[in-house]
Design a protein around this nucleic acid. Structure first.
Lengths: 119, 119
DNA sequence: CTGGATCCGTCAGGATACTG
DNA sequence: CAGTATCCTGACGGATCCAG
């Protein structure tokens, strides 16, 4: 209960903070079961900056969610794909994306209701 | 091909930004199938501030994910629970929380590997 | 092409105080 | 107890340049 649990809590918290953000979830969803290069990922995601993509990709790699494979060619080429753990996570992330898409009208209606109610 | 952030863009993006953050996901997970008061939610969540809880709760309510029920008693009392749509979402969110918990050691190992590799 | 570093503006988010 | 407003700091995130 004392220190061990707190450490686990802190770790879980930092892990959660790493994956519970827009870019991380979108990267995971974008990768899916594919293997993509840096520029391909960037092209498929709307409005992600060079910096944030590199940074988030790096975090995901560090957590063993994304697999990074650099090739010593000229010009350089780096492939990214989900690890086994990453693919497990992708299943649930996909669920969120699916939910978001299929509830867009529901949410838009709820917002209008809320806003016109003087919220 | 139709990614979350392609054509549907603006709305999907704002919806996604609302739920794809640490506090929103943790609130959804904390609520689960229960009905809790403001102070109860705050007590169950680790390190959330009064402000962020109120703010995130408000966003979730606006998007029709959380149901807010105020009672005109003294002292005031407000109950929160997930809506039907919210409970659907909670299923997948729970998947992420479950994944995080069951992969903590995997991730910790991956981090140590990454850090000691001179990352 | 990939990715790190730097500068810099914007805003998330914590602390506090006040209302009902 | 619940919610809002204010202030303020640090982190996020974009643009750009440099390196391999």
């Amino acid at each position: 209960m004392s220190e061990v649990s707190e450490n686990v809590g802190a770790l879980a918290n930092s892990v959660f903070a790493n994956i519970a953000n827009k870019w991380a979830l979108l990267i995971i969803e974008t990768l899916g079961t594919e293997t993509l290069r840096f520029s391909q990922i960037k092209a498929r995601m709307n409005g992600v900056s060079h910096k944030m993509l590199a940074q988030t990709l790096r975090n995901l790699e560090r957590d063993g969610i994304v697999n990074r494979t650099p090739y010593a060619t000229v010009p350089p080429r780096v492939d990214y794909c989900l690890t086994d753990a990453g693919r497990e996570l992708q299943q649930t992330v996909h669920g969120i994306c699916h939910w978001t898409r299929s509830h867009l009208d529901h949410i838009e209606a709820a917002r209008q209701r809320f806003d016109s109610a003087g919220g």
